[in-house]
């Protein structure tokens, strides 16, 4: 099956099996280094990417759903300005995910930060995530390297940077 999509800003024409999971496409076709750990059933939460700006488990996305889609892996995300909010939050709090889950947890944090932006701008009916939601969402990635307090501290710090960014922009 031929699929046109954009991965990390690059427009690509992929020839892959229609049911091939996105995590394998990224690992095999594009040699994306983040996906060296795979559980195959979505239970480890280590393969998060942004699909059309929304965090998804790439092992649960088949190739045929990528037609015209925009995929952003952690490598691509690192090149965006949003990454700096989280990078600074990690530095400020002294807590950061372990190398094992760094990419996935960072992208889940990003999806939570986008919830704030959307709820504050009225672009979504999503409410701003409460503490339990934040911990639960990050918990999608099963690596226990961050405890709940650290997750909340990181999120609060990153949210502050993100809000400042929005204030400057508007």
């Amino acid at each position: 099956m031929k699929i046109e999509c954009t991965i990390d800003g690059k427009h690509l024409l992929l020839t892959v099996n229609s049911n091939k999971p996105l995590n394998l496409i990224l690992a095999d076709e594009l040699e994306t280094p983040l996906l060296t750990i795979r559980c195959r059933d979505g239970s480890c939460g280590n393969c998060v990417v942004l699909l059309n700006d929304e965090a998804v488990l790439s092992c649960l996305i088949p190739a045929f759903r990528l037609k015209g889609a925009r995929v952003l892996t952690f490598e691509g995300y690192q090149k965006t300005r949003f990454w700096h909010d989280l990078e600074r939050a990690y530095e400020d709090t002294g807590s950061h995910p372990c190398p094992h889950c760094y990419a996935s947890k960072t992208l889940i944090f990003e999806s939570l930060l986008q919830m704030i932006v959307k709820s504050e701008s009225g672009a979504s009916r999503d409410e701003e995530p409460d503490e339990e939601t934040i911990v639960r969402e990050i918990g999608l990635n099963k690596c226990p390297c961050l405890d709940a307090h650290e997750m909340l501290d990181i999120f609060k710090a990153a949210a502050t940077y993100r809000r400042r960014r929005r204030v400057r922009r508007y």
Binding site: D130, E131, E132, V135, D147, A148, H149, L152
Partner: peptide
């Protein structure tokens, strides 16, 4: 870990 009144366990 359990959340009590929305807060995670104290460590």
């Amino acid at each position: 870990p359990i959340h009590r009144e929305g807060a995670p366990p104290i460590m």
